[in-house]
Amino acid sequence: MAAASFDPSGFFEFDLATGSVHARGTGRVLILSDSVVAPLVSAAVGNGDLTSVRKLGRELGDCVVEQLGGGVLDAPVETVLEAAAGVLSLMGWGRLQIDRWGEALVASLEQIPHLDDDHLGVAALLGGLMSRLADREIACVPVSAEGHFLLVEPSVAQKVWKWSRSGDDIAAIVGRLAPPTEAS
């Protein structure tokens, strides 16, 4: 297994004198327990406004971009994803995995924090992260109860969400998607 290009050393800076924590590439961060964050995320889901969570994801993307030194889109796939997985791990959001289902991308998080029943909070976080990396809006739609998210264009997100809620598994959902040249 090749060594990861992401080096987590010195990612956090604890200033005990001032009582602040800073992450590399970001501003001041707070260390919160999931039992505190979960009600906040659930409330945002209930209100239908996950903007704050999505903004948090973008900030994690900034961290990744800083780690990579720019040029994310032209960077190798593994380099970018390893950096993103490293940042998420340091922030305590679980271990990121990316699977290719044909042309589709499915992200999954191991040891995902349970913030809401449908993982919509984590979906918003990942959407913010990937949108920052791609420099365009990306929707991460939960497609399983085990923490799998399908990366799609935002205009397709609602339909994929409906398919997932109706019981379609990942294979069925991916099978319903096609490149533009083959789409009807």
Binding site: I138, L151, V152, V156, A178, P179
Partner: peptide, 10 residues
């Protein structure tokens, strides 16, 4: 990302 985001419903 371009390939993934280009997918549309059939």
């Amino acid at each position: 990302l371009d390939r993934a985001l280009a997918l549309r419903p059939r």
